[in-house]
Computed example of a mutant assay.
Amino acid sequence: MLTNKSSLKRRLQIVELVRKRGEVSVEELSQAFDVSSVTIRSDLTYLEQQRYLLRSFGKARYLAQKKGDDMLVPASDGTTRKSSETMIARFAAERVGDDEALMLGAGEIIHKVVPFLSDRSNLSLLVQDIGIAQTVQRFMHCELLLTGGQLEYGTTALTGPDAEASLARRPIDVCLLQACGLDRAGNLFAADHALARVAHAAAQAATRTIVVAYQPLLDERSGEVFASVHDIDTLLIDDGIDPPTLDAVSRNGLHLQRRDNGILEFRRNGS
């Protein structure tokens, strides 16, 4: 039996966070709730016994009741993820106007933005990802340039000094970047050092920076920092984020402007 109200509140929040994200690691939960991993494991043991979630290899997985059955099965979030990423992409496109110079970084959500820009007129696009450039050619009629740089084996994103330098040579009204992580200090992470350097250069060069993310990792080892929430103008993210991280977003000057279908849109005043 739970005798500590703070423990009860934390365990309810853990269930809600795992439900929204599908799967969360012990380390992420420890960071999110500022308690030890031993405490989190105790919480997860209790919640597994109560059949709220399933523990597996240092992670907690959400369990959904299978209709007409007593068995609990892991919830499938593939369809939800696609729908949420598409919604984030649509909201991001709404932040881009006609006649703007736009830089598109790398990432699946960034790729999904492209069709939503097809009705914009007189856009100028600087694109980092070759795959995204091919989609631009299918959906849009506009000026299209690649950043240049080098391709790492198995990727379609251009990185390196040439890619970074190209961002300083052209005026950029808006850059769209995708984050894989967000910590409680408000730092935004890219998957590796090379991607982070290009994203950082883009954010430095652009007049406005929009960052998108779906279920970003919430610990401090999620990749390489490319910017702080303090330095961007808009953050579009799913609502499966723990309260301390959301507080960090607000502390860094972004304010919640819209909550729609599980998506949160934060903007800086006047942006």
Rank of each mutant, 00 (worst) to 15 (best):
L2P: 14
L2E: 15
T3V: 14
T3M: 14
K9G: 06
K9T: 10
R10T: 10
L12Q: 15
L12I: 13
Q13A: 15
I14Y: 07
I14K: 07
V15D: 10
R19N: 09
R21N: 11
G22E: 03
E28Q: 07
L29S: 06
D34T: 13
V35F: 04
V38A: 15
V38E: 14
T39Q: 12
T39Y: 07
Y46W: 10
L47Q: 07
E48T: 11
Q50Y: 07
R51Q: 12
Y52E: 09
L53V: 07
L54I: 04
R55A: 08
R55T: 09
G58D: 09
K66E: 12
K67D: 08
G68T: 06
D69C: 11
P74E: 14
G78K: 06
T80Q: 10
T80L: 13
K82S: 06
K82F: 02
T86M: 04
M87N: 10
F91M: 10
A92W: 02
A92T: 05
E94I: 02
R95I: 04
V96A: 04
G97M: 00
A101H: 13
G107T: 04
H111D: 02
P115E: 00
R120Q: 04
S121T: 13
S121P: 05
L125C: 01
L126R: 11
I132R: 02
I132A: 00
A133F: 02
A133D: 00
T135Y: 00
V136Y: 01
F139A: 07
L145A: 12
L145K: 11
G149E: 11
G149C: 10
Q150A: 14
Q150P: 08
Q150C: 14
E152Q: 13
E152A: 12
Y153C: 05
G154L: 07
T155W: 09
T156Q: 15
T156N: 09
A157H: 03
T159I: 06
G160P: 06
A163V: 12
A163F: 00
R169L: 14
I172F: 11
D173K: 08
D173L: 09
V174H: 03
C175P: 06
Q178D: 02
G181L: 02
D183K: 01
L188V: 04
A190Q: 13
A191S: 15
R197E: 15
V198E: 07
A201H: 01
A202R: 03
A203D: 11
R208T: 01
A213N: 06
Y214V: 05
Q215S: 15
Q215D: 13
L218S: 11
G223Q: 02
E224K: 10
V225P: 05
A227Y: 03
S228H: 11
V229K: 05
H230K: 15
I232Y: 01
T234H: 05
L235E: 07
L236C: 08
D239A: 15
D239M: 10
I241H: 14
P243L: 06
A248Y: 08
S250W: 10
S250L: 13
N252I: 05
L254H: 09
H255R: 07
R259M: 13
G262R: 03
I263W: 03
L264P: 12
L264Q: 11
E265A: 08
F266Y: 15
R267P: 09
G270N: 13
S271T: 15
